[in-house]
């Protein structure tokens, strides 16, 4: 396992995502991408992104923010595209045309991962490609203007699940993609948050050092979509962890370990109240949604702790 990454040491390294990208001020995506690239920078890395905020904003012809080889081909296929790259790498290495040890990382939003890209992702993971797939989950199709996705939480007001007088925002729960990925019995699955940066860096660093398919799901606040204050990006990620909305854990070769347990689990309202997308939930007629939200979190957190205890 890789040694703990120190910021003093990391700050000496070149950040492999250059400034000048066109992502919004305060966007969580470049923070996550930057951390992922820093943690992986012991190796040469080739990255892929599907269509999405990160993709369109980091590479608009004639400019790119990527300091490493990077490919985008379409929206639903980052995993298949990178699987093709990784396979060509193995083919050329076998033929002696490449000698370097290269690592492959996809950095993709939740729309391209949970929904339209899940088939491609599932296939690539099942086939055992040696790559790390990082999802920066901001819980909606932000690039097209905040439409609900399979990652959008219950009750959220989005432009296609607007909170109206009859329908109070999204009426379905989000799907638990991390669990789905763990069910692929891949080498490594984890959930991380940029607020808990040391944990995130450690997970990425561990994942890239391992052979086989790896998946890390990273909560990535989007103040535009979450209707939150620009400066609260990291704060919101932290609250997601402290409320156990976004538990930090890893599943390594089938063994689950919770990597952060809040001393005191904060009520979900603390996370919800800073976000305009949940404002309507605080109206008396919608209180049941917050109750439901909290029950879901409590149940899932208990389940996760139980799962961990199986291996303790």
């Amino acid at each position: 396992m890789a040694a703990e990454l120190q910021l003093k040491e990391l700050a000496q390294r070149k950040v492999l995502l250059a400034p000048g990208h066109r992502l919004c001020a305060g966007c969580g995506a470049p923070i996550v991408a930057k951390m992922v690239l820093l943690a992986a920078s012991d190796y040469p890395v080739v990255a892929a992104s599907p269509t999405g905020c990160l993709e369109v904003s980091t590479c608009i012809s004639d400019y790119t923010a990527w300091e490493i080889p990077w490919i985008h081909s379409a929206f639903e296929n980052a995993a298949a595209t990178l699987a093709g790259v990784e396979t060509m790498y193995r083919a050329l290495k076998k033929k002696g045309k490449i000698d370097k040890e290269i690592k492959f990382i996809a950095i993709a939003g939740d729309g391209g991962t949970y929904d339209i890209g899940i088939q491609s992702l599932s296939g690539a993971m099942e086939r055992g490609h040696d790559l790390l797939y990082v999802c920066y989950d901001n819980g909606a199709y932000m690039n097209t203007g905040i439409q609900r996705s399979g990652a959008t939480p219950l009750g959220a007001d989005t432009t296609t699940s607007p909170a109206g007088s009859v329908i109070p925002g999204k009426t379905q729960r989000r799907k638990d993609l991390t669990k789905i990925m763990a069910a692929h019995n891949i080498t490594y699955t984890a959930q991380a948050s940029p607020s808990h940066w040391s944990d995130l860096l450690k997970k990425v660093s561990k994942a890239v050092s391992m052979k086989g398919p790896k998946f890390i799901n990273v909560i990535t606040p989007c103040h535009r979509g979450w209707r939150a204050r620009v400066e609260d990006t990291i704060l919101l990620a932290r609250l997601a962890v402290q409320t156990c909305y976004w538990p930090l854990y890893e599943v390594e070769n089938g063994i689950t370990r919770v990597t952060y347990k809040p001393r005191e689990k904060k009520p979900i309202e603390e996370f919800l109240k800073l976000q305009g997308r949940f404002k309507h939930l605080f109206a008396p007629e919608n209180e049941w949604i917050i109750k439901q939200f909290q029950e879901d979190i409590d149940r899932e957190w208990e389940r996760l702790l139980k799962e961990e205890s199986l291996y303790a």
Binding site: A18, G20, Y63
Partner: peptide, 19 residues
């Protein structure tokens, strides 16, 4: 085929003007 050969040249875009 569309490709950017100059890695990290987004530096030329001075986003400080967004402030």
């Amino acid at each position: 085929g569309p490709v950017i050969l100059d890695a990290g040249n987004s530096r030329l875009l001075k986003t400080g003007a967004w402030r």
